[in-house]
Design a binder for these strands. Structure first.
Ligand code: FES
Ligand code: FES
Lengths: 162, 162
DNA sequence: TTAAATATGGATATATTTTATCCATATAAT
DNA sequence: ATTATATGGATAAAATATATCCATATTTAA
């Protein structure tokens, strides 16, 4: 069980976008450059964010990506689900119905106890992710980023938005 | 993010083993037959349970698998970790250090806020799994299994252990 | 003592998923 | 018009999950 790389990429990208001045946007090329990531593959992940209405896009020169809503209205869960999808990690294949003791499908009404337990745990995970806003992520990043990096980031932004 | 099939197989297998009379054991062949699963692949998963000390084994005729401890001393988390391993689902690749604004590795002491948040959610998942004992799983199964199946299972057991 | 039944671990094969790239197209700004 | 950009589809390459096979060690039962 591993989350895809794209989840980390997407969170960092959103966190960076959260720092943009109103009205500004960053294109794939610049986002990829900032994090030193594959431009084409990052583009795919940004598309997922776009389809999930987490970011908005503007085509053409000067265009790019920006957050679609306030950073405190976007949660880690939103981002994780945009990238990973919404299907449960645990999937019950109804093993209980199989084999020599299994009986007709109509006999099994509720989801089995195993699935219910696994799904409950998964809900705890999602609930916890839902509690963390992008705003909080950005605030933590701001606080823990070394001053030297903040300086360089400031200069990079000026150039990128010029 | 998907849990491997083996997790479901392992939980069902343990739940069945929990129903064994003291001293009895079931070999791979019979477990696979009961659930109509691939015998060779189930064997691999049972090996993982064995290495994790969730089940004990006895080689030779009349041998097989049995629980290594009481069913209420085994949790879903134990089983999930035996099959899936203990490494975190989210892995921080330290993207923050990269790119044109990144500075020397020595500047980043604590894990980043993104990773801390993701790991916290993961902990909530594991904690929830740890709360569910195999005993509970077995009790739920017993309660929700149709009577017709319980009958057939009883007969199957008698034959299997004869 | 021997034969049969079983688990174990290694090697390997196959299928599926993830990661990554490329391209043709649509769209917007200058 | 030209340039910069996102989008979605097709495809390729790499990694992982699924599945099988085999040689070996061990244990039981005859
Ligand atoms: S029957 Fe296997 S998890 Fe539901
Ligand atoms: S730097 Fe990316 S999650 Fe830690």
């Amino acid at each position: 069980m591993k989350l895809s790389e794209g989840v980390e990429w997407a969170i960092h990208s959103c966190s960076l976008l959260a720092a943009l001045p109103t009205g500004a946007a960053l294109p794939t090329r610049k986002l990829a450059a900032y994090f030193e990531l594959s431009e084409t593959y990052l583009a795919k992940n940004l598309q997922l964010l776009s389809n999930a209405d987490i970011v908005t896009t503007r085509k053409g020169p000067g265009g790019g990506y920006a957050l679609a809503k306030a950073a405190d209205a976007i949660s880690l869960l939103d981002i994780v689900e945009a990238i990973e999808g919404r299907s449960p990690c645990f999937s019950c294949t109804e093993i209980r119905r199989r084999g020599p003791t299994g009986i007709g499908d109509e006999a099994y009404k509720r989801p089995c106890g195993i699935a219910r337990s696994m799904w409950k745990a998964e809900k705890a995970w999602r609930d916890e992710l839902a509690k963390v806003s992008l705003h909080k992520i950005q605030a933590m990043a701001l606080e823990e980023t070394p001053d030297a990096q903040l300086e360089k980031a400031k200069i990079w932004f000026e150039e990128a938005l010029a």
